[in-house]
Design a protein around this nucleic acid. Structure first.
Length: 828
RNA sequence: GCCCGGGUGAUGGAAUGGCAGACAUGGUGGCCUCAAACGCCACUGCUCGAAAGGGCGUGCGGGUUCGAAUCCCGCCCCGGGCACCA
């Protein structure tokens, strides 16, 4: 619009020519968006390298790195819920830019993953084609939202130039091990060098004092190194999702045993898969939460997931073979005198070994499995004829139950007696050893000492199996009163376990007495005694499991791994990257029936020319088979924030000087709350809470490996995290309970709602495709202008709160802008 | 059960030790218009009162303070996360 253009006389009653309405707003916004693009207004200069133009102008300013969790480029484009956080960071970044900061704010696309692949399966269209079209749509939408991104730094995880470096990082992790002596990752070449030099010995179960490296065969040496890598192959029960045709990480399975994505059932089955040794970093991942400024609930969720428990590992010898001991983990070693039986997880390796050939005369029917006939088909009503049979039958039963069944069924305690006994090291008591599925192989040592008087689960089991209940911690008077018991009632008559702390009792032997000590005192005392007799040591245990890293899907990063003719994996050298994702005719994952135990062949197996390859890996040209699994979607999102810093670097994942500038440069006024020194990293990271133990945990893990190996300069990737809320909207269900398109529903709360004449029921939920209540920012922008949309989203409430979308309220914000405009510009 | 949030008009929310309810929606009345609205103005916490004016009021009960939505103690309710993890 030109100021000299003649203004036609408006017809009577028409709004004034220069009233702030959608047409004027769109004209102003479009003009400025063009100008920002032409002038590179939001280009943030690097201190050196290709993007350093103009750095001298900002060299004296503090830097600020503002980051959004990047989106998946969906086929339907954005809805107004998506840009909430993006608008928030944009406002913040602009403010900081205008108040003298060099602000980096960029946007990318997390583009590998299931939806594009599923669309490809249905249409035959290559996922790259749909992905690129979707990215183009979203780019246009982000531009129309007026977001001030440095578009020179945009990337997609599916770009060959990007996933080449994802593969490179994989190799870094593969070629590293965790040195427990210093608690850090180091290159495996250093491990081998120390072993060869003799400064480090090979220690394993058979050689607890170690033996020299030269005593191992070449194959043994290789297996030893492979067992120490931070990426390794493991044959173990994994989460298999038949519907998705792939295995999943523990973090991707919901508490009720379904897939996070798609909500399909997940089953346990043993498969050989790649894993990453995230458990080696459990302690640092937990401890370093103290150094970062994150919402307390996210920290709590990560702490919870990592599950640090302080306790002791105690050895229990078998009565018939005192040289064999069963290690258990307990957080309450002070209750050791109260242990009256032991339990092994069904999968425990000692179960088969200890099971006796015949029952003892006094073994009750319940110990023989009699009560299990109702839940297990092949149990005779009177129980199994021997412990060996009982144990085998019970293990069979336990192995067929999925996680979901374990959740759904009531937590009635089941188990069978192994016919074998262990010795309580404190008092010499004979403890019957049971197998029961309330003990999990994946936690601690997969075996427990049971103290029914002071543990709810052990108490229930002891009641069901008539086992002695011996109190060794005195509950307070009030506890007895609460249960209507006389003080000092014996534990065998208690209605439930006492799990609190208190004075120890009945805990005296020739070497030690805990009686009268408080729980912390008793723990310290018994730990000292256990060490002195060689029966136990203080230990920390974590709930976290290693990260299952391979997927049987097409649309992901190929592994830079091949197999030699012995079937052993070989890492490709850096010079052979990238390993390009090959084209295939059929992207369909292998879908197996729920009971089908065959090994699924990934879609990459169909690229026969690719799957077999002749390479010279140092020993002349040989034929190798490629790894056919792909990486999980989390791989690309683990490090994109680093690539924004130096997106076109062909020689390194990120230039060290540029990395230091943005990740740990001065950030005046941005220090985190509290007394902790800043750990460095991205200054502000905004995204949804749903990644609390997925992306945010994996990215911290990768970052720590890269830090240990010297590729990044900060121990944490994200100094400050903020979770934006969700935008909620009305959703409507028809008579069948199916969601109908909310945009086509008519009526209101008084008269009732109708969809194409049929009455529908109103609900409220997170805006999105699944509830069919998405509102497009394009439509809002056209009707009111982007500034109205942005201002409305920011004015709806605090950024971290969920808020209901209301098409009605937007008009108020638009009028507000009209009033503002009128105060500055004559409408006529 | 354990952990983390939160409770303010009809609605979204503002105020983090100093006039509670900014701003916005909705509502009521008026203006403009043939009629409308993406237009304008006024009123709109509850309550007593014709008005002027008064009383009450931030989940409940106590406390600190000259002064509390805000700080402290004890409850209640709602939302989220975790849970057979020894």
């Amino acid at each position: 619009m030109s100021a000299s253009a003649p203004v036609p006389a408006p017809p009577p009653g028409a709004p004034p020519a220069f009233r702030y309405g959608s047409a004027l707003a769109n004209e102003i916004e479009g003009r400025w968006q063009d100008r920002w693009e032409t002038e590179g207004t939001y280009h943030a200069p690097n201190p050196s390298g290709a993007l350093s133009g103009g750095f001298e102008r900002v060299a004296g300013r503090p830097k600020l790195y503002v980051l959004d969790m990047f989106p998946y480029p969906s086929g339907v484009g954005l809805h107004v819920g998506h840009p909430l956080g993006y608008i928030g960071t944009d406002v913040y970044a602009r403010f900081k830019r205008m108040t003298g900061h060099n602000v980096l704010h960029a946007m990318g696309y997390d583009a590998f993953g299931l939806p594009a692949e599923q669309y490809a399966v249905q249409t035959g269209q290559h996922p790259r084609v749909t992905t690129e079209a979707n990215i183009a749509t979203m780019r246009r939408q982000f531009r129309a939202l007026g977001l001030g991104h440095d578009d020179r730094r945009s990337l997609a995880t599916t770009d060959v130039d990007y996933y080449r470096w994802t593969q490179w990082i994989f190799l870094q992790i593969y070629q590293a091990w965790f040195d427990p002596d210093i608690g850090r990752a180091r290159p495996v070449t250093e491990l081998v060098a120390e072993l060869e030099a003799g400064s480090r010995l090979v220690v394993d179960d058979e050689h607890p004092d170690g033996r020299p490296w030269s005593a191992l065969s070449a194959a043994e040496q290789r297996a030893y190194v492979d067992d120490h890598r931070l990426v390794y192959r493991d044959e173990a029960p994994v989460n298999w999702c038949p519907e998705l045709g792939t295995v999943l990480a523990n973090e991707e399975v919901t508490p009720d045993g379904r897939s996070e994505r798609g909500n399909f059932p997940v089953y346990q089955r043993p498969l050989q898969q790649w894993k990453m040794r995230i458990t080696a970093f459990a302690e640092r991942l937990a401890d370093d939460l103290e150094s970062i400024d994150w919402p307390e609930r996210i920290k709590a969720m990560q702490r919870n997931w990592i599950g640090r428990s302080v306790g002791a590992r105690v050895e229990f010898a078998l009565t018939h073979d005192l040289t064999t001991t069963i290690p258990v983990f307990t957080t309450r070693p002070d209750t050791l005198f109260g242990a009256t039986y032991m339990v092994l997880a069904p999968e425990h390796p000692l179960v088969a070994e200890v099971a006796a050939g015949s029952w003892g005369d006094a073994d009750p029917a319940s110990w023989r499995g009699a009560g299990l006939a109702e839940v297990i088909d092949d149990v005779p009503v009177s129980g199994w004829v021997s412990p060996m049979e009982a144990v085998a039958g019970y293990r069979r039963y336990a192995s067929t139950r999925s996680e979901m069944e374990r959740q759904r069924e009531s937590r009635v305690k089941t188990g069978v007696f192994t016919g074998c006994y262990a010795v309580n090291p404190t008092n010499g008591e004979r403890l019957p050893i049971f197998v029961a599925d309330y003990v999990l192989m994946g936690y601690g040592t997969g075996a427990i000492m049971a103290v029914p008087a002071h543990d709810d689960r052990d108490f229930e089991f002891a009641r069901a199996f008539d086992l002695p209940i011996v109190g060794v911690v005195r509950p307070p008077e009030a506890w007895f009163a609460e249960h209507g018991l006389a003080p000092d009632t014996l534990a065998s008559a208690w209605p439930e376990a006492f799990t609190g702390t208190g004075a120890a009792m009945g805990s005296t032997n020739d070497g030690i007495s805990l009686d009268g000590l408080t729980t912390p005192e008793a723990i310290a005392a018994v730990n000292g005694w256990l060490a002195s007799v060689g029966a136990g040591t203080p230990t920390v245990t974590y709930r976290l499991r290693d990260w299952l890293f391979s997927r049987q899907r097409y649309w992901g990063e190929p592994f830079p791994i091949v197999y030699d003719d012995e079937g052993l994996p070989v890492a490709l050298p850096e010079s052979m990257l990238p390993v390009l994702l090959p084209d295939v005719d059929d992207y369909t994952p292998t879908v197996l029936g729920d009971d089908d135990q065959s090994v699924p062949v990934p879609p990459l197996g169909r690229a026969r020319d690719w799957a077999e390859v002749t390479l010279d890996l140092g020993a002349g040209p040989r034929t190798y088979r490629r790894e056919l699994n792909t990486m999980p979607q989390w791989a690309g999102s683990c490090w994109y924030y680093l690539r924004y810093l130096d997106p076109h670097n062909d020689a390194a994942v990120v230039d060290p000087a540029i990395e230091r500038y943005w990740m740990q440069g001065a950030t005046a006024g941005e220090a985190p709350a509290g007394d902790q020194p800043a750990a460095g990293g991205v200054d502000l990271y905004v995204g949804g809470v749903e990644h609390a133990v997925l992306h945010l945990l994996y990215a911290r893990f990768w970052h720590k490996v890269l830090f240990d190996l010297g590729h990044v300069s900060t121990p944490e990737p994200f100094q400050r995290l903020y979770n934006q809320g969700y935008i909620l909207a009305d959703a409507f269900l028809d008579g069948r309970g199916v969601y109908v398109e909310a945009g086509e529903v008519e009526g209101d709360a008084e008269t009732g709602f109708a969809f194409h004449g049929e009455p529908v029921r109103r609900e409220q939920g997170k805006m999105g495709k699944s509830l069919r209540n998405a509102v497009s920012p394009d439509a809002i922008g056209a009707e009111y202008g982007t500034d109205t949309l942005r201002l409305y989203e920011m004015a709806m409430g605090p950024l971290d709160a969920d808020r209901p979308w209301s098409g009605r309220d937007i008009i108020g914000v638009h009028r507000f802008l009209q009033k503002l405009w009128r105060n500055l510009v004559d409408e006529e």
